[in-house]
Design a binder for these strands. Structure first.
Length: 688
DNA sequence: GAGCACTGC
């Protein structure tokens, strides 16, 4: 491969790098490539199979199948276990069925958590098909806005966030006999909090002499000592998968310009490999991806005769759904598919037919600075586990090749694992939820990877300022307001509101991705169309106007298209709003309309967002009230050309400068009313 | 005077 990039001879590896040492039970060695030897174990045979032949054959061909008997025998006697299964081992679809067939579901439901909604839904569909039952009966799923379960449900797939929500009303998880935490290696905030919640529930149920709670942690990576150690030395069961071997190349020299290196690699592969073999390139963001896509298309037009043609497809989350779908369609014969993607293709979207992966080793990710309390999105190096995850995308159907655009020495210096999200985000929501579950002492909660004390303290301070906390007998507990806030699937700062029709709408608009669609090429058109909604009082009121018009005119997709509104997100706003409204009604919160009284909406925003306020300076610039940091109004704001004396904002965006996004004009007095102590402290600090 | 990775309740 590319001499210019300077790749040395390949190394072969299997993703996951083989089983670790220590407390590991080897369940099976099925061999890779799907052609491995099969062990037939008498234990592994279900007594009389209820499955039709084809499904049964397919189930039996999975690497997990020969281990069935051994696995069940082990798990039956264990409170907790860690199961490592490589991609394609069949663990997620089969294990819940084995557990059920083994009687684990008799006294309670088997919960299987997933970080993503689509995964929970599609797994439930598949498993209920395998069981030849109607979805929602024996096998069901629960995700936000969608619950397909019934009295009969024994195997329930749900998002990790959903199980966490359930734990607020029942922290012992009494419905469940077993919780399977899948994709644990991804370490989402929700999974991380669940680790602590299920561990505590398990302990408490034992103390109370209740039905034991079985906990099974499933991970795709070998690095599981942490899991095992956390669950009191739970045994690690290892299951080999169906991954195919992948050749990994490193560059000989460090690359100054990873974009250029990626471009060179793509065209070297393109000129050497058969056109049926597709390429997946990992870059960091939309702009980079669009630019690279254009360059690739331009170069592909001028390639020498005999070179195959190229279909270049960008892929990132904010790409319209229809365009995302194109990556799944086959390219015409003799044409190569080149997919240029963010890390969305690492886990969320799986594309078949990828033979080559080009890994720049870079990713855009959130970093948290507990000192300043700010979250910053920055381009940074991937971790080793992330790099292996990317390589693995090349070997899903056949052997594959991964070009790493960094040297092996550089790779060795990468962090071993991605820092878990819980150490990189604002913890206010997490603490609010833990307090709602009546966790005895949130400050010493048993996190698997503990956030730093100042990090936790910052969240406590934020919740305290919002009026959610009180100190009772040396314990932090929730105020009635705090309990109300915890009931809403919202950031704590947005969950503090007087329930009016208008506020429900604004809060819903803020909790989904922007409903505004602004293609840069049609900027003048966008501005002309948007003019009729613009409010001098800021972006929130403008959004409110857009939503109202959308609803009044029947909420059609055509209207959205004509008005540069993202209809998918707009529908979601309506769905969120309906959910919030239900919660308000359930809690008997009085619902009033401010009848066009926009000032009350702005006052309410001031009460939620007083921690994110900025003041106009005599020189025409702005500084934040909290930290006196210089900030500017983002050009996308309707207030871009205005100079209001005092604003609150939803978000700070760190790019070249520091921009405020989604602004609302407020009266400085309202801010003071919202948190007098806080502003007195700020004033004192400013004087000293 | 500019531009946000990815999830989830």
């Amino acid at each position: 491969m590319p001499e210019e990039a300077g790749f040395p001879p390949a190394k072969r590896f299997r993703p996951g790098c083989g089983p670790p040492g220590g407390r590991v039970v080897m369940l099976l060695a099925a061999g890779g490539g799907g052609g491995g030897r099969r062990q037939q174990s008498a234990l592994a045979q279900p007594a009389a199979s209820p499955y039709p032949e084809a499904v049964e054959r397919q189930r039996r061909s999975l690497p997990i199948f020969p281990a069935r008997g051994q696995l069940l025998a082990q798990l039956r006697n264990l409170d907790s276990a860690v199961l490592i299964g490589e991609t394609g081992s069949g663990k997620t679809t089969q294990l819940p069925q084995y557990l059920y067939e083994g009687g684990v579901g008799r006294q309670g439901i088997i919960a299987v958590t997933q970080p993503r909604r689509v995964a929970a839904i599609s797994l439930a569909t598949r498993v209920s098909d395998e069981k030849r039952t109607e979805l929602g009966k024996l096998v069901g799923y629960t995700v936000r806005f969608d619950d397909l379960t019934s009295e009969a449900t024994r195997i329930k797939f749900l998002t990790d966030g959903m199980l966490l929500r359930e734990a607020i009303s029942d922290s012992l998880l009494r419905k469940y006999s077993c919780v399977v935490l899948d994709e644990a290696h991804e370490r989402t905030v929700h999974t991380d909090v669940l680790f602590g919640v299920v561990k505590a529930a398990q302990k408490r149920r034992k103390e109370l002499g209740k039905l034991p709670l079985k906990v099974i942690v499933m991970s795709a990576t070998m690095d599981v000592d942490l899991f095992s150690h956390y669950f009191n030395g739970a045994p690690v069961l290892y299951l080999e998968g169906r991954q195919h071997p992948i050749q990994v190349f490193y560059t000989k020299q460090p690359q100054q310009d990873y974009l250029h290196a990626a471009l060179v690699s793509v065209f070297q592969i393109h000129q050497e490999a058969p056109p049926s073999q597709d390429i997946l390139v990992f870059l960091t963001g939309q702009e980079e991806i669009e630019a690279m896509s254009k360059t690739c298309r331009d170069i592909a037009k001028h390639l020498p005769d005999g070179c195959p043609s190229m279909l270049v497809l960008p892929l990132y989350a904010s790409l319209p759904y229809a365009q995302q779908l194109r990556v799944f369609q086959g390219a015409p014969k003799g044409c190569r598919k080149v997919i240029i993607s963010t890390n969305i293709a690492e886990t969320s979207i799986t594309i078949t037919g990828i033979k080559y992966v080009v890994d720049t080793g870079m990713v855009k990710a959130k970093k948290y600075n507990p000192g300043s309390g700010l979250e910053v999105l920055a381009v940074q190096r991937v971790s080793k586990t992330q790099a292996w995850q990317r390589s693995g995308r090349a070997g899903r159907e056949n052997s594959g090749v991964c070009y790493r655009l960094y040297t092996e020495d550089e790779f060795e210096k990468f962090e071993k694992m991605t820092v878990p999200e819980i150490q990189r985000c604002n913890l206010a929501s997490v603490l609010l939820q833990l307090l709602a579950m009546k966790v005895p002492d949130v400050l010493t909660f048993d996190f698997m990877s503990k956030p730093s004390p100042d990090h936790i303290q910052a969240a406590v301070a934020q919740l305290d300022l919002l009026g959610a906390l009180e100190q009772k007998d040396d314990q932090l507990t929730l105020t009635p307001l705090g309990r109300k806030m915890a009931a809403f699937p919202l950031e704590p700062r947005f969950a503090k509101f007087h329930c009016t029709e208008e506020i429900l709408t604004v809060v819903s608009l803020l909790s989904v991705d922007s409903v505004l669609y602004s293609p840069p090429a049609r900027r003048d058109e966008v501005q002309a169309v948007r003019k009729k909604f613009v409010s001098g009082e800021g972006d929130h009121i403008t959004l409110l106007n857009i939503y109202r018009t959308f609803k009044n005119l029947g909420g059609s997709k055509d209207w959205c298209r004509e008005n540069f509104v993202n209809s998918k997100n707009m529908m979601l706003v309506a769905e969120v709003r309906a959910q919030l409204r239900d919660i308000c009604l359930k809690m008997s919160m009085p619902m009033v309309s401010s009848r066009g009284d926009v000032e009350s909406v702005r006052r309410c925003l001031a009460h939620s967002l007083f921690m994110s306020a900025a003041e106009l300076q005599p020189d025409g610039t702005y500084v934040t009230t909290a930290t006196r940091q210089p900030v500017a109004i983002h050009p996308s704001s309707v207030l871009f050309h205005c100079r209001p004396a005092c604003v609150v904002y939803t978000e700070l965006l760190h790019t070249g400068r520091c921009y405020m996004r989604d602004l609302c004009v407020v009266d400085a007095d309202w801010l003071y009313e919202a948190a007098p102590d806080y502003f007195r402290r700020k004033l004192r600090a400013a004087r000293d």
